[in-house]
Simulated assay, not measured.
Amino acid sequence: MNNILKEIESNINNYGHHITIVTEGLYPRFAYTIGALDKVNFEIIFAGGIFYSNKEVSKIINIIIEKLEEKKNWVSFKLEIDILGVFTLSEVDSSWSKLLMLGAYDFYNKNEIPTLQIIPDINHYTFDIPKLKNNFNPSKEPVWKYLVDEWDYSVAKNVTVVTNLDALFGQPITEVMRWEEDEWEMFSGAGPDVEKEEIRIVPIGLLLGLDNSISQALKLDIGKGMWRDKSDMKWNKWG
């Protein structure tokens, strides 16, 4: 813990803030700052947004903080960042920040930390991005329900799945294969047609939150798969 605290303090001293990126767990990746509060009166969080790599998320956060220092009015904030898209900001309810930003609450030892959520434009808005301005409700944000709910499936809770951006933009998953004990592919559209840059690896809990009907895939034998047509959405076994 002391080493983590030293790293946070070092980054704040050297760069003005520290960025924590959380990638392990049953829920989507998220990233948040520690130290931006003293510069722009808010900490910043980017929850979900699997369209972007970790490196791109850090870049987006850093540029937004830089621009916020120039323009303090976050309500009208709108920023285009080269090919990454256009970003706005929204307030974060403390019910979310207290679940996601444990490091910031430990660092400041405060009961409340004003926080802003980064919102990408519609072309980059994947279904793992929650509405943090609302009070946390797992039934309304099923992709994030395992922040508070117990894992209730027979497979290991740390399983990840290979999927594609179409699925993460809300298109129905139509093909599923189980290659190993804890290795699945779940695609919207034909798997062989998915381009490399469209592939993402996500927690299985994320996809179950998007569409619980894929829970049938957890019962597949190794080497088996299933498919469905969008016209009737009925699962069929391969072969």
Results as ranks from 00 to 15, higher is better:
Pro142Gln: 09
Tyr15Gly: 07
Lys140Ala: 13
Tyr108Pro: 00
Asp106Ala: 02
Leu168Cys: 05
Ser58Ala: 14
Ile81Arg: 04
Ile204Leu: 15
Phe77Ser: 02
Tyr125Trp: 13
Lys110Glu: 02
Ile214Cys: 14
Glu180Asn: 12
Met101Cys: 14
Phe136Arg: 00
Leu102Gly: 13
Tyr105Ser: 08
Asp38Phe: 03
Thr115Asn: 02
Lys6Gln: 10
Gly25Pro: 11
Ile50Cys: 04
Leu220Cys: 05
Tyr125Lys: 15
Trp74Cys: 00
Ile19Thr: 08
Ile21Asp: 06
Gly223Asp: 12
Ile8Lys: 07
Leu210Met: 15
Gly85Ser: 10
Glu43His: 02
Ser215Ala: 13
Ile119Gly: 01
Ile173Val: 15
Asn73Arg: 02
Val202Phe: 14
Arg200Glu: 14
Ala104Asp: 01
Lys67Pro: 01
Leu207Val: 12
Pro138Lys: 11
Tyr153Asn: 09
Phe77Tyr: 02
Asn158Cys: 09
Leu147Phe: 09
Tyr146Gln: 10
Trp184Asn: 11
Ile63Met: 12
Ile60Ala: 02
Phe169Gly: 08
Pro172Arg: 05
Glu180His: 08
Tyr15Ser: 13
Leu116Val: 00
Lys237Gly: 08
Glu175Pro: 00
His18Asn: 13
Tyr153His: 11
Glu180Arg: 15
Lys59Cys: 02
Ser53Glu: 15
Ile4Cys: 10
Ala190Glu: 14
Ser97Ile: 00
Glu9Met: 01
Glu180Lys: 11
Lys71Met: 01
Pro130Gln: 11
Leu99Lys: 04
Glu24His: 12
Glu69Asp: 08
Met101Leu: 13
Glu70Cys: 04
Asn137Cys: 12
Val92Asn: 00
Asn2Trp: 04
His18Trp: 13
Gly103Lys: 02
Pro130Thr: 09
Asn212Phe: 07
His17Lys: 03
Gln171Phe: 09
Tyr27His: 11
Pro114Asp: 03
Asp128Ala: 12
Arg29Gln: 05
Ile129Met: 08
Val57Asp: 02
Lys224Asp: 11
Asp149Thr: 09
Asp106Arg: 08
Gly189Tyr: 13
Met1Gly: 14
Val155Glu: 05
Pro172His: 12
Glu70Ile: 06
Ile129Trp: 03
Trp179Ala: 07
Glu9Thr: 09
Thr126Trp: 07
Ile12Pro: 06
Leu79Ala: 08
Gly191Val: 15
Val155Cys: 14
Lys157Gly: 06
Pro130Glu: 11
Pro203Ser: 11
Glu56Gly: 04
Gly170Arg: 01
Ile199Val: 15
Ile45Asn: 01
Glu70Ser: 04
Leu206Tyr: 12
Ile113Tyr: 04
Asp221Lys: 15
Glu66Ile: 08
Gly225Met: 05
Trp144Ala: 14
Leu218His: 10
Pro203Val: 10
Ile8Asp: 05
Lys6Asp: 10
Leu220Thr: 07
Glu56Phe: 14
Glu180Gln: 10
Phe51Thr: 06
Phe51Ser: 06
Glu197Val: 14
Ile199Lys: 15
Asp38Tyr: 06
Val202Asp: 15
Val143Glu: 07
Lys78Trp: 00
